[in-house]
Design a protein around this nucleic acid. Structure first.
Length: 585
DNA sequence: GCCGTTTTCGGCCCGACTGTTTTCAGTCG
């Protein structure tokens, strides 16, 4: 058996096979099938390798018998014969060029053939050199402008290493707000909304897509292009424009008449895969969908929609919440009136992970309790980082716990509208032990454990650590389970299916952490955990009273994981909720 | 190559923009 391959590595192999097929003029639907599978793998936080090991590769949407076989060969033998044959007579260097802005498989092939780019390593450099010498414009199909663009794209690529910034959802929100504010200056802009992955509440947003309703597109487009933060205009037409703002972040605008705004909102919200499913569904009914409306296939009559809801209604569909427009089975469910009733922020009745100034929080216990009462919560739990026996000594820690216990009892009895629980967030140490002895854990109302160190251990040791927590009779909640920090630290390397099996068996609770750069569990793991009936809780991990507002981000993640209120413990009333904790069970 | 409440065969979303062309291919979303 070959070494474990990452999804990224598998995707690379599939992408190059797909590019080879494009160059060779393979059936375009076959190419599309590859693209679908590649996207499914790229957007999954599941390890394809893990799925393969448990014989579940074909469960990946878009992966059928043939691709299952290829992936099997790849993971078993390290290569796929069919792919090798496909690319045998193609210059290797072309694969290095794909992905440069404006270069797809065909242009990459033309370039690589023209300049005999057999060496991958040197390919990029050679093309840049050719562009500088003005040799690219001589290739048929290329011209002066394309040549200049390629040179610029390569220069840019070297600078940024192809890492286009994906902003945290919360960061994208601040940009959207600034655009809204600017748009308000022009009365001709009747409506404007940020759509795409932003409206679907994806945890990171690669660009912001705005639909704009107006009767005066020319004036509006000019106004939008005058947005002061713009540093570069990429595309500029009368219906559409793409621009780049100061932090290299891209904005797309689509301008449309108010009559057609609803269709544009639907189209631009996506996801691409939801729209493909929706359009297939409509085709069966004799309709063709586009951003301009719903066209009757026979008569070509176009129905227009000012409101998105009417667009779905016309197709006899319940309106699908943006968060689950994922191209799964949401369209079928919408047709049958079976869409999940997704959890809402107003369903939340408590929060069990917050810090005070006892550890690294900024507010006092009393202040946190007041803030939770202001939110109307029925229960709350403080989970400060546990005091260390190593540094303080055993007796001192016992003293702290005794006096803290008294404080909690006092404040809990002071208010009869909220239950205040005393817990700690304890560390799951590198040696697979827990950072606080059992006799201390026993004195708490609840126990959260989390990984805070040694994230890059091998999966065997990581799993050993997690099993310590999962099998521990005093542990209630596993905090931020993947320990990822978005854009900073990858999720730890664990076989999530094995871990979920164990969590389910031992009836532990998994946290959905609402911190904008954690959002952990990630939504697709939430989806899987929920399907397995694993208990979930949405916590803020608040380090100040203001952080309690982060709850909405965690709720978004739960919604993207198709959670209803019943799937999340802290939507339950106080009495029902407490039964989920070891101490009150 | 994938997929299935009319189907295991026969379909497969739809359009904008650019650059290079004299009507369209390539790329992108």
């Amino acid at each position: 058996m070959t070494e474990r391959m990452t999804n990224q590595e598998i995707v690379k192999v599939l992408k190059e096979a797909e590019a080879a097929m494009e160059v060779k003029g393979a059936n375009r639907f076959r190419i599309r099938a590859y693209q679908n599978a590649i996207n499914a793998i790229e957007t999954s936080t599941f390890s394809v390798y893990d799925l393969w090991k448990s014989g579940r590769v074909s469960e990946i949407p878009g992966v059928g018998a043939s691709l299952t076989q290829h992936i099997n060969d790849l993971l078993k033998e390290g290569s796929v014969k069919e792919f090798e044959n496909l690319r045998k007579d193609l210059p290797d260097g072309m694969f290095e060029l794909i992905g440069i802005q404006g270069i797809g498989a065909k242009r990459a092939h033309k370039l690589a053939s023209a300049f005999e780019l057999d060496d991958r390593e040197a390919a990029l450099e050679k093309v840049a050199e050719a562009a500088e010498k003005g040799k690219i414009q001589d290739i048929p199909g290329f011209g002066e402008k394309t040549q200049a663009q390629i040179l610029e794209a390569i220069t840019e690529l070297k600078k940024t290493k192809n890492e286009k910034p994906r902003l945290l959802w919360a960061q994208a929100e601040t940009i959207a707000e600034r655009v809204y504010k600017y748009a308000k200056e022009l009365p001709e802009i009747q409506k404007i909304e940020a759509l795409g992955s932003y409206r679907r509440k994806k945890e990171t947003v690669g660009d912001l897509d705005f639909a704009v309703a107006t009767e005066d597109p020319e004036k509006v487009m000019q106004h939008l292009l005058d947005f002061p933060e713009i540093v570069e205009v990429l595309v500029e037409g009368d219906k559409k424009a793409s621009v780049v703002i100061g932090n290299e972040f891209q904005l797309d605008f689509r301008v449309v008449s108010p009559d057609q705004y609803g269709s544009m909102v639907q189209y631009f919200t996506g996801s691409k895969y939801h729209n493909i499913v929706l359009r297939s569904f409509a085709l069966d009914k004799g309709y063709s969908l586009s951003e301009y409306g719903i066209k009757e296939s026979k008569s070509k009559k176009l129905h227009e929609f000012a409101e998105e809801a009417d667009f779905y209604k016309f197709l006899d569909l319940d309106i699908v919440p943006p968060e689950i427009r994922q191209g799964k089975n949401e369209v079928d469910l919408a047709a049958n009136g079976n869409l999940p009733k997704l959890i809402q922020l107003s369903d939340i009745k408590g929060d069990l992970h917050m810090h005070t100034n006892f550890s690294d929080g900024t507010n006092t216990l009393e202040e946190m309790v007041q803030a939770c009462r202001d939110k109307g919560y029925d229960y709350m739990g403080i989970a400060d980082h546990a005091p260390s026996v190593e540094s303080r000594g055993y007796a001192a820690v016992q003293k702290i716990i005794t006096s803290t216990r008294e404080n909690f009892n006092e404040i809990d009895s002071k208010y009869n509208d909220i239950k205040v629980l005393y817990g700690y967030e304890v560390n799951l140490l590198a040696d697979a032990s827990i950072s606080l002895p059992d006799e201390f854990l026993e004195q708490l109302d609840f126990v959260i454990v989390g990984l805070h160190t040694a994230f890059s251990q091998d999966r065997k040791q990581l799993m050993k650590r997690y099993m310590t927590a999962i099998e521990h009779p005093l542990v209630d909640i596993i905090a931020h389970p993947t320990a990822r920090l978005i854009n900073e630290r990858d999720a730890v390397d664990v076989n999530w299916m094995d871990l979920f099996d164990a969590v389910k068996k031992h009836d532990k609770i998994l946290e959905i952490n609402s911190y904008p750069d954690r959002l952990d569990l990630p939504f697709d793991l939430v989806f899987e955990a929920r399907e397995r009936g694993i208990k979930l809780i949405i916590n803020t991990d608040a380090h100040s009273t203001g952080h309690l507002d982060l709850m909405r981000f965690g709720v978004s993640v739960a919604r993207r994981g198709w959670c209803e209120a019943a799937d999340v413990l802290n939507t339950q009333s106080k009495d029902a909720f407490l039964k989920n904790l070891q101490k009150f069970a």
